[in-house]
Every structure is written in C-alpha cells, then in structure tokens.
Design a protein around this nucleic acid. Structure first.
Length: 475
RNA sequence: GGUCCCAUCGUCUAAUGGUUAGGACAUCACCCUUUCACGGUGGUAAUAUGGGUUCGAGUCCCGUUGGGAUCACCA
C-alpha cells in the first residue's frame, strides 16, 4: 500500500511556522516513500474562516516547492478536498455511527452540557441523552428537534496505541470525553471530520501536533466502530518561541510570510525548520528540499519541543545567500537597492560587494545608506590602531590620494587598488594608512560593505574626488 | 486539579549500557585582510535532582523538581 499523507490546515489566517513544519514533515514522509501528498482544507468552523487564507496556503506551499498531488484546486480521486463541501458525507457517517453504537443523539443545549460538568471535582460530563432509547431519539430528530451527535464511550480500562514518535501511549477510557461529533449546524467537528476524511482519502500517516496525543484514543474508537484501520500516528512536539510559549500567531510571532518579507529565503526557512525536531544523524545541516526527501526518516524525529532561534536561521540564510549566483542574488537584492538609493551608481558592483556579507536582505538599506550621502562624522573615526592611522596621517594620506586619483582614468577596482598601493609604497606608508582614511572619507562609517577602492568604483570618480575634498576640508 | 508527554552546552542537536559527552548557531581569541564581513584555527560552555539496577548509566527503573499539553458545538 502506497504512502499517502495529508496537510489539513484550517484557513484561519497566515501560515505560521509550526504549521509549515508539519506540512513539511507530511510532505517528506510521502515523498521519501514515493507516496502522495494531499492538501485538504478544514473549514468546518465558519466563525473562524478568514477570507484569502486558502490562497496563502496555496502560495506558501508553492513558494517552497511542496507541491501536492491532490487538492481542492487540482482535484483527485478522493475529493472534494474542502470539508465544507463534504458536509453530506459527514452527516451520513455520523448517523451510521449512531446505528453502530459509537455515538448517540444529544438534545442538550451547550449551556446544559456545561453545567453538567464540574471541573473542580473533576466530574466529567455524563450526557443524560445517552440513555434515551435510539428509537425515541430518532423520532425527536425526525420531528425537527435540534440535536448534535455525540460520541459514546462505554469502554473501560486502558486504551493503547502506538505513536511513531512517542512510542506506546496508554490512556484510560475514563479520561476520554464524549465530545460532539456533528454540530447542531450540521458541520462535523475536527474530531469526526479528520477520522472520516483520513479514512476515505486512504491516508496512511497522520502528522499533527502532540496536543492530539491524548485525544487520539477517541479517534481510534471511531475507527473501531466503523471497522476501519487507523493510520500511523506521527505526533510532533511544538515549535516554541521560548521555553514556555509556543510560537503562535496570536502573539504576532513570525509567520512564513513575515520572514520572507524580512528578506529570508524560502529555501533557508524550510531547511532551518526541518532541523527543528529532526536531524539526519550526521553533522550535515544544509539541505535542499530534494535532498531532504532522500534522507528524511520518521525514526529521527524528536520528542521534545524546540525553540525557534532566529539567530541561527539568520546564519543559515547567509549561507544560502552566498550560494546564490550573481544574477540570482541581484534579482533578490534589486528591490531593496532601488528603494534606498537616491544616487545613480553602479548597482551591480554594489550587489557584488554586498553578497558575501549579507545575512538578510532587509539589512541592505542600513548597509548602503552612506552611498547616498556621507553623514557628519567625528574625525576621531580616522584613528585606528591596527591600521596605524589618526587624523594627521589621514590628512596627509587623503591629500596624496586626491592628487593621484585625479590622474587615474581606468576606474576599475583592480586598477584603483594597484594605484593606491603603489602610492603608499612611494610615500613610505602602509597600505592601510592610505586605504583606511580613504574608506572613512568616502563613507563616514567605521564599517562598510566593501573596501576603499570598491566603494570608489561604486560611487564613481567625480563623487569620490568630491568626498575626499570635503573630508580634507574638515581635517 | 486529574491524565498524558517532555528534560544533554544560552539555542538546535549527536552519542548499540563502555567516547577526553561530538557537531552547528551564538560568544571569546587568533589568523587572513584595504574596513566590515566571508573563510580558517582554537577556547569557554551541557547530561535538572535524589535513589536504585549494573563491573560500568546521559542511556534502564523509581521518586523529586521544572516545563508543556489536554479536560470546547476550535482545530
């Protein structure tokens, strides 16, 4: 039997990182086994539905290259793939489950049910409707009385099942809640819809957050009543924001689209989150999606929560940026460059010096601001012990450099560097005693992307000479 | 509170019951260098805690502590 996994998000907003990681694991399990990855939209709660959320799901999965084999937009043999379009199916199976004894009609209002519960004394909700004879209940349903269908749990003792990550799990049947399966509006709850759909869609591996570990026995009971075989369960620990809080959209924690907007590459994000809770068993860390397909295995999934570390993601993003070809890098960087530059400069040369030192694209504006104009700076900037420079050395060096640069016509980095190096030698100075002051004069900043001559090439000859003259006036 | 789950450097993690407890990020130092980076080399840094089993425990068992999850007509 071929492996079939499903990603089943509810369209309630943007794609958060934990969700994306679950999708990734689903995808990898399927693809590592030559199986199918199915996309199903769980929109049974109309109150939480957010317009456009489905499109975000589509675009995110496409952007990272996790293409689905069946789904709402492309169809498949097990559709429809949107739960709201499957409403009659759930009703049919819910009533069937009642006949099979796995559920019963309940006429209590939500308020009544709440009152029955006493959380203080840990008394569970004992639904009085359980005792209504089926024939009588059916009559009331037929008569149009509002009802829900509630799971019936009469079993005693321990429920056991195997989880691929957590191992064997045992939970007492008494702990299980007789939850609502079919709501009064006719929609199923997750508790029911996921079982019916996973079975009908022949899902073999269910990956979901470990908050479902303790409710899984309820689902198994449903499978049992219908005589169906439950899937393999792969419960994964949450992705945390810190030691005690999950990453959540409510807190405004980073979503996939937030990260992309900040200049993180989708490939780097996928690579990073794959490693949050999974490892390949060796020291390798950089993996493309295709490479992950080859090495991924359920056995190496971790049981404990992992804290999302933006610092490491940032490092990894830097690795990916460096792997980009010059053209690819330019394509990503161009919008940021154009948005901040007010001066006409050699934008390609600028991109070249930026690529090896950038970790996130959103750092570009702050890194290249000096290209537009040189901010006021204190002349103590010229003091650098290692370069053996100070204001006096700078004054001399800049004067020499100005004089020499005026005569240079081949304004390439190689030539400029050669000229200034030769100049230093002629004047009996160290390279740094020329280069450092020139760079400061051109940028007004202690740190810059690129060295003195690289900056000179980018801003051009006229501007270079003008900036050196200005700097000299202030010394 | 009941139940379930989890626990190795600050963070992500590795370690058939036998290693000087390994790697990566971060951090520090040095090297490279026209700055800053990149890159390279090295350092600091961990088995929550108490018992037990064993010749030997990060690893197995029990307790403690700490953390998380769950107990919805949300998923």
């Amino acid at each position: 039997m071929s492996v079939r996994t499903r990603f089943a998000p509810s369209p309630t907003g943007y794609m958060h990182i934990g969700n994306l990681r679950t999708a990734l694991y689903e995808y990898l399990i399927a693809k590592a086994n030559n199986g199918d990855f199915i996309l199903r939209i769980e929109d049974t709660d109309q109150k939480r539905f957010v317009e456009g959320a489905t499109d975000i799901i589509y675009s995110t999965l496409k952007r990272v290259g996790m293409l689905w084999d069946e789904g709402p937009d492309i169809g498949g043999n097990f559709g429809p793939y949107i739960q709201s379009e499957r409403k009659p199916i759930y009703a049919e199976y819910a009533h069937k489950l009642v006949e099979l004894g796995g559920a019963h009609y309940c006429f209590c209002s939500k308020e009544q049910a709440d009152e029955e519960k006493d959380e203080e004394q840990n008394i569970k909700f004992e639904d009085p409707c359980k005792r209504i004879p089926l024939e009588e209940a059916k009559k009331r349903v037929a008569a149009g009385e509002p009802f829900v269908i509630r799971q019936t749990i009469n079993k005693k003792g321990k429920s056991k099942y195997h989880d691929e990550v957590y191992g064997d799990i045992e939970i007492d049947y008494d702990e299980l809640d007789e939850g609502v399966l079919l709501k009064s509006d006719g929609f199923p709850t997750y508790n029911f819809a996921n079982v019916v759909d996973d079975h009908l869609m022949q899902i073999t591996h269910v990956v979901r957050g470990n908050e479902y570990v303790s409710s899984t026995p309820k689902y198994n009971l449903i499978y049992e009543s219908f005589g169906w075989t439950p899937p393999h369960y792969v419960h994964v620990p949450p992705v945390m924001k810190d030691a005690q809080h999950k990453l959540s959209k409510r807190n405004g924690d980073a979503s996939f689209q937030d990260l992309v907007a900040k200049g993180y590459l989708p490939e780097a994000i996928i690579n990073y989150i794959a490693l949050l809770g999974w490892n390949p068993g060796d020291d390798r860390e950089i993996f493309s999606l295709d490479e992950l397909k080859k090495v991924f295995s359920i056995e190496r999934l971790n049981r404990s929560p992992a804290i999302f570390d933006i610092v490491k993601l940032t490092w990894m993003n830097g690795q990916y940026i460096r792997q980009l070809s010059e053209d690819e890098f330019f394509a990503y960087a161009e919008p940021y460059l154009k948005q901040t530059l007010t001066r006409n400069v050699d934008i390609k040369a600028l991109a070249r010096v930026l690529q090896p030192r950038l970790e996130v694209f959103s750092d570009i504006p702050s890194q290249i601001g000096f290209i537009n104009n040189v901010a006021e700076f204190d002349t103590t900037l010229y003091i650098n012990k290692k370069m053996k420079t100070d204001q006096a050395v700078a004054k001399q060096a800049l004067a020499f450099a100005l004089e020499r640069l005026k005569t240079v016509n081949d304004w390439s980095n190689d030539n400029l560097f050669a000229e200034l190096k030769a100049l230093a030698e002629e004047k009996g100075l160290k390279n740094g005693q020329i280069m450092y002051p020139v760079r400061i004069a051109l940028s007004g900043r202690e740190t810059t992307p690129g060295g003195a001559t690289e900056i000179a090439v980018i801003i051009g000859k006229n501007e270079t000479l003008r900036r050196i003259e200005n700097a000299l006036e202030r010394l």
